[in-house]
Design a protein around this nucleic acid. Structure first.
Lengths: 212, 212
DNA sequence: ATTACTAGGTTCCGAGTAA
DNA sequence: TTTACTCGGAACCTAGTAA
């Protein structure tokens, strides 16, 4: 079958929910897709000949359903995309003991205020340290939106800026934080969340976590 | 951007893993896709103009990477397909007490032998009864392959044929069985598996299960 | 109403070839 | 070697219209 007409097949798949049969007309489809009635008619005939759809012409229109072959075709496309995005949308890490300084930084009002505004949650006073593969993280973060948290100065000392990335850890909303001037090598990430993740998710040192 | 050239974008997405930049040439791509070098060149220029890819032309070829907009475009397509297939690929049910007759039927050698051959596992001697929405099940099964188990006759009585569908219940390989002459209305399904599912999965009456 | 055939105009492709 | 332009021909789309 012809690759280029994929959008019509997608349209039909959505309308039929892949399953039900759809009572419509070539004119209506043409209107939806912004092409002529004739083009839709011709393409439906082609699809039918290619075994992608089952098509019954009636005096009042057409009744269309996606055939098993059509579903297979779409599923293969879905599989291709799934393979691309799933790989790029999550990575694994190992929980590691922190040095407790995460708690100190997360306690600073200058950070807390910005987290609440920018991330939409008030962070638990502490960070989860996770050992990761830097290459996998880089690929993951490349597609993510960066949230900047600015540095500030208190009476005692100055605090540097951070970059944050919204993530999900085992279903819990969280954020990666990367200090502009980091003390970790890039094989360790710090994660903040509204709750104490070690407790909420039952994590211990050397437990594997999936970040997405 | 032009919808019809989606396959070239998919090709590039796969080659670049959505992320890395790809060192290649229009000629190589043309060979892979079975079109002319000129067509690839023209399309790459078009994609670049549409902001779908980043493209650097060198004397030895082209260096291509998918742009954020291109990823967004593919992701939207992925989302559409995901919505279709995820809905059609699982449904929920509620565990119900059986009448114990499942154990009797599953104990019949005439059935057990066919299950082992056709399903690839030896079923636990008993069935899990699950109350379901008939409409959801019908939609789910429509896409599934039917495995027929034939009826047989023993010295005492005759046993009817079954239709089976391979499924996965909370990660465990299993099968739906639908007797040709059923005593259930179609709002109750019977599930067999290699293990005692109630124990393996910690199921009790009225627990919700997801079948996929 | 519909679907879908024919005819004509537009778009698209690929061979030749310049840079 | 490359990329990508020109141009002739193929493919495709739409208007008109038959059934």
């Amino acid at each position: 079958m012809n690759q280029k007409d994929l959008y019509l097949l997608l349209y039909l798949a959505q309308k039929t929910q892949l399953q039900q049969s759809l009572q419509t007309s070539t004119g209506k489809i043409a209107l939806d897709l912004g092409v002529s009635q004739q083009t839709v008619s011709r393409k439906l005939v082609d699809f039918s000949a290619a075994g992608m759809i089952d098509r019954i012409v009636t005096p009042t229109g057409v009744e269309i359903s996606i055939s098993p072959d059509g579903r297979k075709h779409l599923f293969s496309l879905y599989g291709d995309l799934h393979g691309m995005f799933v790989g790029a949308m999550q990575f694994k890490g190992i929980v590691k003991a922190g040095l407790g300084e995460g708690k100190f930084y997360m306690g600073q009002e200058g950070y807390r205020k910005q987290f609440a505004e920018q991330l939409g949650f008030v962070p638990f006073m502490g960070t989860l340290n996770v050992a990761v593969d830097p290459a996998a993280v880089e690929q993951f973060l490349a597609t993510k939106e960066v949230i900047y948290v600015e540095g500030f100065v208190t009476a005692e000392r100055s605090f540097g800026g951070l970059r944050c990335y919204k993530v999900c850890v085992h279903g819990v909303e969280a954020a990666l934080i990367v200090p502009d001037r980091t003390m970790h090598k890039n094989d360790t990430l710090e994660i903040i969340a509204p709750t104490y993740l070690r407790e909420t998710l039952g994590l211990k040192d050397d437990t594997e976590v999936i970040i997405e």
